[in-house]
């Protein structure tokens, strides 16, 4: 063969061609599929918000159901109160180390189901391997949890990843996040199995302690801001 495949020249050329080809391929794939992926992400967000008020939506009817149930959305605290609440990327703001916690925007989705109002609060935090997030719906008394839904990016399947299932998130239903005078009451995650019942405690996940604690941290940190906001309304 004419080309010496062990020569430096060949090796370098091969590497360069490979990198260019693979890079181009991935860039094209990423750009070409971006619109579809963004739409999927938006749909997913709507489905999650609705699932916090126990409304089942599918990807096909996400927009329609969202428009039907979510009557208003706003930013209750943060840097840019006039921004569109749905477009606020709390994940990005949470990750942004340069952004002071007080400058983060806190969106609130006001939903109406069977003419009862619910307030859906997005939460974001850190699990064991990566971000975890969720939506907590409060009843119209601003203090009883109506429903919650959590999700994660890279938690261990079967362990931390269990937070996304109803068996975990249903424990939050009915818990009270503030007493009658409006003093914030965090929902703690416990290990000793005492979490059942409405006692401001939920059972953590066996083998998923750090993720469970992450949920506790993010709900505590975020709900406090909202409880304080609701107190100003009363």
């Amino acid at each position: 063969m004419a080309i010496d495949k062990n020569s430096n020249g060949y090796t370098f050329s091969f590497a360069i061609v490979m990198v260019v080809v693979v890079g181009a391929l991935l860039a094209v794939a990423s750009q070409g599929l971006k619109t579809r992926q963004d739409k999927n992400a938006t749909d997913k967000k709507m489905i999650s918000i609705l699932s916090a008020i126990n409304v089942e939506a599918t990807r096909a009817n996400a927009q329609e159901m969202y428009d039907k149930y979510v009557v208003d959305s706003k930013i209750i605290a943060g840097k840019d109160l006039s921004a569109e609440a749905f477009d606020v990327d709390i994940k990005k703001e949470f990750r942004d180390k340069k952004l002071a916690a007080s400058d983060r925007n806190y969106p609130l989705y006001i939903c109406e189901k069977d003419s009862i109002r619910y307030y859906v609060i997005p939460v974001i935090g850190t699990g064991l391997w990566g971000p975890i997030w969720g939506f907590v719906a409060l009843e119209s008394d601003y203090r009883t949890i109506y429903g919650a839904t959590f999700d994660h990016k890279t938690e261990t399947p079967g362990l931390g990843a269990e937070i996304k299932y109803a068996s975990y998130s249903d424990q939050y239903t009915g818990e009270i996040v503030a007493d009658t005078s409006g003093v914030f009451q965090p929902i703690v995650v416990v290990k000793d199995g005492s979490g059942s019942g409405l006692n401001a405690k939920v059972d953590g996940i066996t083998g998923g302690t750090i993720t469970s604690k992450g949920v506790e941290e993010m709900t505590t940190r975020t709900l406090e801001v909202y409880v304080n906001y609701f107190n100003t309304l009363n």
Partner: peptide
């Protein structure tokens, strides 16, 4: 494939495939 960088080439092939599959899934089977 030049034998001196064969492991890297294999790694790139696998990584590119996996990313590609993931991107496609994200778009079509979220």
């Amino acid at each position: 494939i030049p034998s001196r960088i064969r492991i890297i080439v294999q790694l790139v092939v696998v990584a590119a495939l996996v990313i590609l599959v993931n991107e496609l899934l994200k778009a079509f089977m979220p």
